[in-house]
């Protein structure tokens, strides 16, 4: 019962703040709503017995990434009211994509036998624990894991080089 109440609150929070992210005019308010969305989703992960993913979601996405958004917003300032929305005339495509995605989601939901999942065995408590995830990353899927880290390193180095070139072209250091 308690779990269902928690799920209801978290799901409503995720959807409500998710809608706010795309509807509020001010970028600052959208970022704040985004924090609420990410935390609600973290609660959903927690309810799905995935505490590690939930905490990482809060640290990396809600913690670090939105902080960077806010940092950029603080430096650029809010210009929401002055800039005209240049993408407004392409709105129809956005709505088309939304409709297609919603239709696809509805089809998947309706054709899946959801009741079947209730009969399935509940997952072992070890599933989703830090040890379990560590073993999966460093034993079973070592190669993709290392390839991803290499890719991220290349991206980071590339970003630094591009930024340095931009600074030099402006006559900076």
């Amino acid at each position: 019962m308690g779990e269902q109440i928690a799920f209801g609150l978290a799901a409503a929070g995720a959807i409500g703040s998710g809608i706010l992210v795309i509807t509020v005019r001010s970028a600052f308010q959208a970022a704040v709503a985004l924090i609420a969305t990410l935390i609600s989703v973290a609660v959903l992960f927690l309810l799905a017995h995935a505490p590690f993913v939930a905490v990482i979601q809060v640290i990396v996405y809600a913690g670090a990434i939105v902080t960077l958004f806010l940092f950029v917003l603080a430096y650029l300032g809010e210009r929401a009211r002055r800039t005209p929305d240049r993408l407004a005339r392409y709105q129809v495509f956005a709505w088309l994509v939304v409709l297609v995605l919603a239709a696809a989601g509805a089809i998947v939901l309706l054709t899946t036998n959801l009741a079947r999942f209730n009969d399935a065995q509940s997952p072992s408590p070890e599933l989703g624990s830090p040890q379990d995830i560590g073993n999966a990353f460093l034993k079973e899927h070592l190669l993709p894991f290392e390839a991803t880290s290499l890719l991220l390193l290349v991206a980071a180095v590339g970003a630094v080089i591009l930024a340095k070139r931009a600074v030099q072209s402006e006559g900076g250091r």
Binding site: I39, P51, F52, V55, I56, V58, I59, A62, G63, A64, T67, S129, P130, Q131
Partner: peptide
């Protein structure tokens, strides 16, 4: 919690 230390970091960043 088996994620105790991470929770502390998450709370700090919040």
């Amino acid at each position: 919690l088996n994620i105790g230390l991470l929770l502390a970091f998450a709370a700090a960043s919040m």
